[in-house]
Amino acid sequence: MSAELLPDMTLTLLLLIMAWGALYAPQRSDAMALFIAFGVVVALIWARLDAPDLALAEAAIGAGLTGVLLMHAARALPDELHRSNRTATYWGALAFAVVASLMFLAHLLTDDSLLNAGLLDTDSDVTPSLRVLADANVADSGVSHPVTAVLLNFRAWDTLLELLVLLFALSGLRQLFPRESAPDDHATSRWPESLALMSAWARVLAPLLVVTGGYLLWRGSSAPGGAFQAGSLLAAAAVMLRLTGLLPALRWSSVWLRLSVVAGALFFLSVAAATAIWGDGWLTYPAAASGLLIVSIEIFATLSIAITLSLLVIGEWEDLRS
């Protein structure tokens, strides 16, 4: 085994331990912590695998937003929910899992294995593939960063639907606050006092995050970064501010909030419809305006993503129903 593999081995081991811990740590708080750490390690692996876009997104989403989410859950849920699970089912399941793993490994190692069956062949064998075409067409896409080109031009339909995913999740979340009138036991500050200590940091950190987010958005068309990363960062900032009480409650009754939640998807969809009606077809940007269109879509999307994500993480009755 070469020394070059050492960091990879370390990361692998670390990841496995954390995964195990996140699942089976005796205390749930430990498990949550380990899960957040797992996100950080994954971000490292993304970086190691030359995926900076992903590392950024993972850092913002996996470590940041998920952490807040889990904290929320930790407070909301009683501890006794967690029980020992070393039951017969457990061992049975383990046995099954082992069998499945062995089967999988057996296939991995036989002649006709995954590794030999073209999965790891170089792309030279795999022609003409989507990837080759994507690389070749980046120039025509209106942006120079290939990932952004794929996201917002080649596979813009996916991205449009993805914005809808966010929206639908939020719609689902809204159903968890069914009452039309304000709940009596509604606590405006349900977050622990300790978080208030963060407020000092937050005052510093939040603008920084906003600026970084803006930068990422701007950078997205030519380098790693883009609407999602920017949106996640902005959402993190918003969450932070909200938690420390620096940001007032967002109110669903405000048309601006609703508009900013819907804006990304609505604009994107309008573009799609417009291109279908007046242009060359569904989501076929006019060549001249494609860069502009992508940027504007990104801006709207960032706004929507930021607001929606923050609502998803910390949205309460007053944010979603008032």
Binding site: S129, L133, N137, N153, F154, R155, A156, W157
Partner: peptide, 15 residues
């Protein structure tokens, strides 16, 4: 068949 975004077959998502 419809190639979304007007991209060539293989690159575009198709409907």
């Amino acid at each position: 068949l419809l190639n979304l975004g007007g991209w060539e077959t293989g690159l575009a998502i198709r409907m």
